[in-house]
Computed example of a mutant assay.
Amino acid sequence: MTWKRLTFILIPHSQSSVKQFRLSRVLIFGLAFSIVFAIGIMIFYILGFKGKSYYVSKTKEIVNKNKILEKNIAYFDSSLADMSTKLDSLEIMNKTISNKYGISLNNNDNGAGWNIEVAESGLKIPLKRVLFLIDRMDKKSLAFEHNFEVLYDHCEKNSEFLKKLPSIKPSNGNITKGFGRSFDRISNTTKLHPGIDINNVEGTPVAATADGVIETDNFTHEFGRYIIIDHENGYKTRYTHLQSVSQMKEKIRIKVGTKVTRGRQIGCMGKTGMGTILAVPPHIMYSVLHHGIPVNPVDYFLASDFVDESAKKIPGAQNL
């Protein structure tokens, strides 16, 4: 049997009459619910106040950190802008030297695209470390700029000598035989190989490696067709196993006494002379002679590539 109401009896210690209170079931449940609801509101308010104060303090902390980061990023951007300006200036100076003296730019691009990719690599580089690296690079760029200016001044003072220094590969291709003593298949003995062999397809352009004058354009049983250029500074260069004029698709006629500049095409790779007898692939033997003594051409290379791979329609490909 369910109850519908409760009766509360109050018995005082004095002689006053006993008092009774009757409360219905609905009223009792209503009072209980109101008390629980009030307690919940108080707890929620207390927790909400503490949470709000916590988030307010955290927000202030984040705002302060963001201000510091913004200052550091501004310094970072300013430093990078200054470095970019300096590098642009160095690049202009570099191209000026290269264009003036025929030095290739192909080997000067190492590290050009260097950057710190924190997001992709997953590295976490401290900001202080990044700023330290920027400062270090900035100081090194100043030193590099000074060295470049010294080099530029030196090149200006010695421009005529540098133009006549054989400092590039005469043709595009692989070096298949180096300078020095090696076994000779013809004599079956070890003898000095007075140059380097460069191998490529027949007809590959061959260019002068420095300014000079054509001294010899001749043909021998050993060298086939060969050309010697006198650079008028104690250096001469020799290019052997060239195609004869009749073998060339584009006839390039060289006359003794003709002045040539570095990078100008003087002939085409062939296999004349002993190359025909031994059935070796097309190649040239390129030699550098210093006061008549063969020296290693590789020691003079300032760039490991040919000035132009094909010598197509450039001053070096003009017919003489």
Rank of each mutant, 00 (worst) to 15 (best):
R136P: 03
S159R: 08
K164T: 04
V213M: 09
I227T: 10
Y54D: 11
G270R: 07
P126M: 02
H241K: 04
A207P: 04
I92S: 13
N172H: 11
P297L: 04
G102T: 00
L27V: 14
L151E: 06
D217R: 15
K124G: 08
A38P: 00
E156I: 08
I134A: 13
I214L: 11
A303Y: 00
T7Q: 12
Q20I: 07
V26K: 14
P126G: 04
T258C: 11
R253A: 07
P315H: 03
K163I: 03
P297C: 03
F161A: 12
S167Q: 11
K4N: 14
L47I: 09
A303F: 03
S79Y: 02
E160V: 07
I41A: 14
T216N: 12
E70N: 15
I168E: 00
S84L: 03
G292M: 11
N107R: 07
K169M: 11
P194Y: 02
T190K: 13
T7E: 08
T272G: 05
F29R: 11
H290E: 14
K236A: 10
K313N: 15
G102P: 00
K157W: 01
I227H: 06
K50G: 04
P297Y: 02
S14N: 14
I73V: 12
L23I: 15
P205A: 07
P281A: 06
S104E: 00
C155M: 13
S182C: 04
E70Y: 05
F29L: 15
T272E: 05
V118L: 15
D299P: 00
Y239E: 11
D184Y: 04
D109A: 06
N172F: 10
V280P: 00
I9V: 15
V256T: 14
L278K: 03
S167Y: 01
S244Y: 08
C268G: 06
I11S: 02
Q265T: 04
S141A: 15
R136G: 10
V260S: 07
I134G: 08
I196E: 03
A210K: 04
G263K: 02
S79F: 01
S79V: 08
S141P: 03
S14P: 00
D308R: 05
D299Y: 02
S171L: 11
I41C: 09
Y226S: 14
K65N: 13
A303I: 01
M274K: 05
R136S: 13
S89E: 10
E202H: 04
D197T: 00
L131T: 05
F44T: 08
N200G: 04
L165A: 03
E149D: 10
P126A: 04
G292I: 13
M83H: 02
S14W: 01
P282A: 15
S121W: 01
F37Y: 05
A317R: 06
T85M: 09
I103A: 02
K52A: 10
L123E: 13
V18Y: 00
I46Q: 10
